[in-house]
Design a protein around this nucleic acid. Structure first.
Length: 596
RNA sequence: GGUUCCGUAGCUCAGUUGGAUAGAGCAACAGCCUUCUAAGCUGUGGGUCGAGCGUUCGAGUCGCUCCGGAAUCACCA
């Protein structure tokens, strides 16, 4: 519609002022609610052609559009703004097209040049269970996948598991020393939590040793290095790297516990992956690439045998790539992973969903790859998101203020159950189906709460208040959807089948037209969210739409409407909006209950 | 100290490529359930958009300088 209008405006200026204007000077936007009209042309940029007052210019163009187009039915000029009214017949035609069966709501979002895009998200460590920060990460990554693939891109969901390093040895060691052979089966504890428990035990025992050593007069750093536990952990890491059978066996065993625990959490969150990479499999590739670059003199070796790269041409520092003992550092693994992925998929883009604490890291990674001669390095996108904080401040694992993912998921569901009982909902519904609905609501509340916030901002998560089911929340949108579904169940009972031929009643400025306008906006929002990688746009739009519908719902009766034309229009409108809400929430990964 | 990000109502957040009188929800107060779900709707109060300068017909939005907060700058991952 905007394009149609723009073309007409161009034409009018050619006719009225004999001038050609460029697209960027023609600004068409939706008319603000408090003014009459549907679209508004900002005339200020056009004054240079008309050499006239804004008011007169607006009137001239408005006049031309009404006379020379079949969709502009009226206009008014306020200051430098030309408000145009679109004819009801145009809206009607649009609506009938949009509401007819078989119209794919996402078809219009399709991009012209589909790309192969890798989305990496989750990236857990195998020594700790997932927490709220991971939840934000997973939800953002999964939603990006849905949005981008809905726009026609070929998207591959990947996860990189950080499964090697000293931190893993810590939990292994603690389990050997204090574990008494505990397993997830023998204790009933979820695997990732069990391993996490031993990581904490290690830290506690280690801390006690360090304190004892400090009493003996060592300073803190030295005490850390001298503690017997730390020594044993380092020895274990060496054994692991040397491929010691027993150590690797234990490592595999404990990792398998962790993975089954993670799988359970991923399933609960509704996310999955097409391909999982393990750092234990890529760090060697990274080392080889660095050594290769060393031969080509792209990187250099220091006198102490460590390997560095000079990134001053990218306004960065010298970065270490290999330690003096020849082992890989974090970024070396990432180089290996990136190259391996390019070999595997030949991607156009790789989107790394990783917290903003690693902004610098990804700047460095891209520069290294560029300098090393990988032309596709520009396709690396760090989708940087902000921290999740608690009302008391940041989450700190040391202080036990971390919100565990499994806990919060369970809590949200319990709250949904409690609230439902309090409100007397779903009274005589089968228990099993109720539980499924509570799961959808609780999880929907959590997902929406996190996704509606601009990803790059730090956000505050208040466990007590987050489970607010009023206002701009997932359950509010789910509720709107469930209520529409209910209208249709009732219509079925009453034997009402809307006839498309009757949809003709929408009058300019009516609530129905307002809703149709929002419907029209949908594809634009999805495209914008895809190009900007921000699910939050879709979330907030969906709330706006739901809110508008709720008002509509209260202002009018639908089934009780005596005029069948109006009733069918409202039914069709409800139907279309429920489909949009469903699709929008689907893009966010939020499931929708049919009733609640 | 260098770099990056953030700062909008008491709180949590929106605010499209710069457009008209800056919007929701929560919290507070006042109303609305015999008709399609009240997890809803309506109304009231609440703002120097961190501060200043600049660009522009027009700045919450763009530029510069400050102020405040966060992250990062490891032979940690």
């Amino acid at each position: 519609m905007e394009n149609l209008l723009k073309d007409k405006v161009k034409e009018s200026i050619r006719y009225l002022y004999s001038s050609e204007v460029t697209d960027d000077l023609i600004q068409v936007q939706e008319t603000r609610k408090d003014f009459q009209g549907d679209f508004t042309l900002v005339v200020f940029p056009l004054l240079r052609f008309s050499k006239n007052t804004p008011e007169q210019t607006g009137r001239n163009i408005g006049e031309y559009l009404v006379d020379n187009s079949d969709f502009v039915s009226g206009y008014n000029v306020i200051k430098g703004f030309l408000n145009l009214e679109i004819s009801a017949s145009w809206w009607k035609e649009y609506f009938i097209r949009a509401s007819s069966e078989g119209v794919n709501l996402l078809a219009e979002c399709s991009v012209k040049d589909p790309q192969v895009i890798l989305v990496e998200y989750s990236s857990p460590n195998t020594n700790k269970p997932l927490h709220l920060g991971h939840v934000r990460n997973n939800l953002l990554g999964y939603s990006l996948y849905r949005i981008l693939s809905s726009c026609g891109h070929k998207v591959i969901k990947t996860n990189i598991v950080n499964d090697r390093g000293i931190h893993i040895c810590k939990s292994m060691l603690a389990w050997l020393k204090y574990g008494k052979g505990e397993t997830p089966e023998s204790t009933g504890i979820k695997g990732d939590h069990l391993v996490g428990k031993y990581y904490v035990i290690f830290e506690q025992k280690h801390k006690a040793q360090v304190e004892a050593l400090m009493q003996e007069g060592f300073d803190e750093n030295e005490a850390r290095n001298r503690s017997s536990l730390m020594k044993e952990a380092r020895e274990m890491l060496l054994k692991w790297e040397a491929g010691d059978k027993e150590t690797v066996g234990l490592w595999e065993r404990m990792n398998s516990w962790v993975y089954s625990g993670f799988d359970e959490t991923y399933r609960a969150l509704g996310v999955d992956f097409d391909r999982i990479y393990y750092e234990s499999e890529t760090y060697i590739a990274g080392k080889e690439i660095v050594l290769d670059a060393l031969e080509k003199n792209i990187v250099y070796r220091n006198s102490d045998n460590s390997v560095w790269i000079d990134l001053s041409q990218y306004e960065l520092d010298q970065k270490l790539l290999l330690r003096s003992d020849g082992t890989a550092v974090y970024i070396t693994q990432d180089i290996g992973t990136a190259v391996k992925r390019y070999k595997d998929y030949g991607f156009d883009k790789t989107i790394y969903v990783v917290g903003n604490e690693q902004n610098y890291h990804f700047q460095v990674l891209r520069s290294i790859l560029k300098k090393t001669g990988y032309h596709w390095a520009d396709g690396l996108i760090h989708f940087s998101y902000g921290m999740v904080e608690l009302p008391e401040g940041k989450m700190k694992s040391r202080e036990g203020t971390v919100v565990d993912a499994d806990d919060i998921i369970r809590e949200m569901k319990n709250t949904a159950r409690g609230l439902s009982a309090e409100l007397g909902k779903l009274g005589d519904y089968p228990e099993e189906e109720k539980e499924e609905i509570f799961r959808k609501i609780g999880l929907g509340a959590l997902k929406y709460f996190i996704l509606k916030v601009d990803p790059k901002k730090n956000m505050t998560f208040n466990p007590a208040e987050s489970i607010d089911f009023n206002g701009n929340t997932g359950p509010f949108i789910q509720y709107t959807y469930a209520r529409i579904k209910s209208v249709f169940r009732k219509a079925d009972q009453m034997g009402i089948v809307p006839e498309p031929s009757r949809i003709s009643k929408a009058v300019p400025g009516s609530k129905e037209i307002e809703l149709i306008k929002l419907v029209r906006k949908f594809t634009g929002i999805v495209s914008e969210a895809a190009s900007g990688y921000t699910p939050a746009l879709i979330a907030n739009y969906c709330y706006e739409l739901s809110k508008e519908y709720n008002q509509f719902y209260h202002d009018f009766t639908i089934l009780g409407e005596s005029d069948p034309n109006l009733r069918d229009l409202r039914l069709e409108l409800s139907n279309l909006i429920s489909r949009i809400i469903y699709t929008a929430m689907w893009l966010l990964g939020v499931e929708m209950p049919e009733r609640m």
